[in-house]
Amino acid sequence: MKVTIKQWTGVASWKWVANDDNCGICRMPFDGCCPDCKLPGDDCPLVWGQCSHCFHMHCIVKWLQSQPVNQQCPMCRQEWKFNNK
């Protein structure tokens, strides 16, 4: 071998892949954060429901807490279940 790789440091960037630009609850962009957070990214993650709708985690949790019965997706009124694929 003329040249061997001792060490490689890769650099990658990540962003959310959601089916919409904005959160359906707070109307803020997914690239940003929910109104209660200051920094987007790991501190303000997105979550998906089994209905495939996507929200800021803080937004949907708040929504679900405000619904004593019938925890539904605010977009399609199906029963809300977190999608942990």
């Binding site: 060490q7 490689w8 440091t9 890769g10 650099v11 990658a12 960037s13 990540w14």
Partner: peptide
């Protein structure tokens, strides 16, 4: 190889 990574937002 020895692998390291930076994942950036």
């Amino acid at each position: 190889i020895n692998f390291g990574i930076y994942v950036l937002q």
